[in-house]
Amino acid sequence: MLTAGDEGWDEAVLVWNAMVAAKPSLVVQPASDHGLLLSIKGGGNNIAGTALADRGLTLDMSRMREVTVDPAARLAHVGPGCLLQDIDRATQPYGLATVLGFVSETGVAGLTLGGGFGYLTRRFGWAADNLEEAEIVTADGRTRIASRAENPELFWAIRGGGGNFGVVTRFTFRLHEVGPVITGGLAAWSADRADDVLAT
């Protein structure tokens, strides 16, 4: 548990949107999900800053960064504190990837629950489209699985609907064949070819 002035406090309350001025009174950083029923902050990348409760209790899940890859099923089971780099690092040895954002330091939870788009969006849809299921603790303290088949209305709500539906303690993403070697870069044409390029 951390309070203002403790070592690690500044990192625990750091979120991506620096305009968010809310400061919690207390931060709790679990290292596993045994018996936990609440959370607020994952990777700290929700643009609205909902990872922090002003003068409230913030449970910091950012240490829960385990990724388990099932290459045969093409699924990745992802902890709520993971950053994009954690998933890429775990999936690329299998030549697999899922749709995430553009920056490796982005938190998976905020990105996915907000919809989430990135380099693979045009080919495979949004991050929320590639979410197969989520383990979520709802306000009544029950742990549920949300998927297309189980609790489908909750599953619909968490895929881009914002916050306040519960606390996701595990994400399961669909994986696609990408890599492990890829070529990236900028495609550019001379301005005198603009008519041909735009027509194409």
Rank of each mutant, 00 (worst) to 15 (best):
R170E: 12
D129C: 10
F155R: 07
M1P: 00
T112E: 08
R142C: 05
D192P: 00
L75G: 06
G114D: 03
P152W: 11
G101E: 13
D129H: 14
A73H: 06
A12Y: 05
F124W: 10
L38E: 09
G101F: 08
V197D: 14
H77I: 01
D70L: 03
T3I: 13
L57G: 00
A22L: 04
A12Q: 06
G114L: 04
G166W: 07
P180N: 06
G5L: 04
S25T: 06
L2W: 05
F173W: 15
G44P: 00
E7Q: 08
V99E: 10
C82E: 10
G116L: 08
A109G: 10
Q85I: 13
I87S: 06
A149R: 14
I40H: 14
Q29E: 14
N130S: 06
E105C: 10
W16P: 00
R89Q: 15
L83E: 09
V168W: 05
C82M: 08
G79T: 02
P93F: 15
G95N: 11
V67I: 03
N45E: 11
I158R: 10
V13E: 02
L96N: 02
Y94A: 02
L84I: 01
L52P: 01
G141P: 02
D70N: 15
W16G: 02
L96V: 07
L26E: 11
D129F: 07
V108L: 06
G8W: 09
L113E: 14
Q92M: 12
G179Y: 11
T138E: 08
T169P: 03
A187I: 15
T106P: 08
A4D: 12
V167R: 04
N130C: 13
F155E: 05
N17M: 03
M64I: 13
Y94G: 01
T58F: 05
G116M: 05
A72C: 01
N164A: 15
K41Q: 08
G116A: 13
V27H: 04
T200C: 15
Q29C: 13
A134R: 09
R65P: 01
G163K: 02
V67G: 07
F117G: 04
L37P: 00
